[in-house]
């Protein structure tokens, strides 16, 4: 076999091996129930309980309402963005407000507080779960 032919075969092999995705074959032998559970919670890994908390909030707030998000960390770059960004999808249909932005609390009809229980004038607690509380504006 000449050197040119070997080089061509090596290039084709590199592309074929490099493009190959073994997981799409391995998945037949993977525990898919565990995979499903892992993928479902994957986006919320750093905020345990946030996903189920947001599902509860979604059920208790009407579409079109304005829901502010509170978290133990209220600095945008130090954890707040993580919680806020992941609140958008479960609460779709509502206006999700970031309390780091000026005037957000004034506009909020609800405050969903994950792993926090803030006492806010003009708001009353309407639901408490394992991972947070939901407040509604009363004044």
């Amino acid at each position: 076999m000449n050197r040119r032919l070997l080089l061509r075969i090596a290039i084709v092999a590199a592309i074929a091996i490099g493009a190959f995705e073994p997981f799409y074959f391995r998945i037949f032998f993977t525990d898919r129930t565990r995979l499903r559970a892992a993928l479902t919670t994957l986006p919320y890994t750093k905020a345990p309980g946030l996903r189920t908390f947001l599902i509860e909030v979604e059920q208790r707030t009407p579409p079109g309402s304005r829901v502010a998000i509170a978290a133990p960390w209220m600095e945008w770059d130090r954890g707040y963005e993580y919680v806020f960004a992941r609140s958008l999808y479960p609460l779709a249909g509502r206006e999700v407000l970031a309390l780091t932005r000026p005037g957000a609390l004034d506009r909020a009809e609800y405050v969903a507080a994950w792993h926090a229980a803030p006492v806010l004038p003009g708001f009353t607690e309407i639901w408490r779960g394992r991972d947070g509380v939901l407040l509604r504006r009363t004044q």
Partner: peptide
């Protein structure tokens, strides 16, 4: 077929899907 099992394994989980 394997890819189908992967792509439908759970509700879409990518951050860019959620946001």
């Amino acid at each position: 077929l394997g890819y189908t099992l992967f792509a439908t394994a759970a509700p879409m989980w990518e951050f860019d899907f959620l946001t």
